[in-house]
Simulated assay, not measured.
Amino acid sequence: MRFRDRTIIITGASLGVGRATAELFHREGANVVMVARRLEPLEQAAAALGDGDRTLTIAADVADNEALAHLVRATVERFGGIGGLVNNAGAHFRGPVATREPDELSLMVDVNLRAPIALSSMVLPHLRASGGFIVNVASLAGKVPLDGAATYSATKFGLRAFSYAMAEELRGTNVSVSVVSPGPIDTGFIMDELDEVEDIVLSQEICSAEDVAQMILACASDQRVEREFPVSGAKLATLAYLVPGLRRWLKPRLVAKGAAQKARLRRDRGGG
């Protein structure tokens, strides 16, 4: 029970990675503050945990700074402090920049990058008081430019840079900052939009929401700055970033591999 009586805020907690992370920290004895836009699915997820004394659900738009400030106040009022933050909420409007509206692109920046920065700043005094952690959920798309998802990729690059820089700012203090960078995850974020997902994304091994939650818990425990999955995909992404010519040469092969994986997933789900 490594996190007994610690209070952990988790954004995007009604499903997928956020819900799995809330379940994991709850099993570790933590108080979990579950945040998402819609209250009903949040309450359903919290009810499944049991022990309502250790859960708090807050419906909030993380793109709204006033909502974030309310979230921090409500957490401290209920539990007396904050011991950790998991910035997991994400938004992705798929397709090339030319196919998306400016408001959609701006929303991705707000949810994926600006909100984690703002919320990290707001909770930092409380984390300093308690000795806590921040774990940001990025992506392998934050390690190599992903055409077809340029804005999403940019936000994840930014989130990784923010995480590394903030970890350096806080080195030697009682607060750690980490980032997890998974490839495709078997959640609705990918699977409900399978036809729109870029084929190259599915060239990487798919992990589960529980796998990513374990990565988050591990970073919170040992303060490692970054964990990635799959490790081979992370190394390939870094190499492709450093050698753009190699990325262009590999792309047709990776796209073909991802297209084959997409076809298998469709068949497995009865989609033809």
Rank of each mutant, 00 (worst) to 15 (best):
L24I: 05
L24Y: 11
R27Q: 14
G29V: 07
G29C: 07
G29R: 10
G29W: 11
A30W: 05
N31A: 10
N31Y: 08
N31D: 02
V32N: 00
V33Q: 04
M34G: 02
V35A: 03
R38F: 11
R38G: 04
R38C: 05
L39S: 04
E40Y: 06
P41I: 02
L42N: 01
Q44A: 14
Q44C: 15
A46Q: 04
A46Y: 03
A46F: 00
A47K: 12
A47V: 10
A48H: 12
A48L: 06
G50W: 07
D53H: 09
R54N: 13
L56V: 05
L56S: 06
T57W: 13
T57V: 13
I58M: 05
I58N: 03
A59V: 01
A59L: 05
A59H: 01
A60S: 00
D61I: 08
D61F: 11
V62T: 01
D64G: 00
N65W: 11
N65P: 02
E66Y: 10
E66S: 07
A67G: 02
A67N: 03
A69P: 02
A69Q: 14
A69D: 03
H70A: 14
H70N: 14
L71Y: 07
L71A: 00
V72Q: 06
V72S: 02
A74R: 15
A74H: 15
A74I: 07
T75S: 08
V76R: 13
V76Q: 09
E77M: 14
R78C: 02
R78E: 01
F79S: 11
F79L: 10
G80L: 09
G80E: 08
G81S: 14
G81M: 13
G83A: 09
G83Q: 11
G84V: 03
G84E: 03
L85I: 07
L85Y: 09
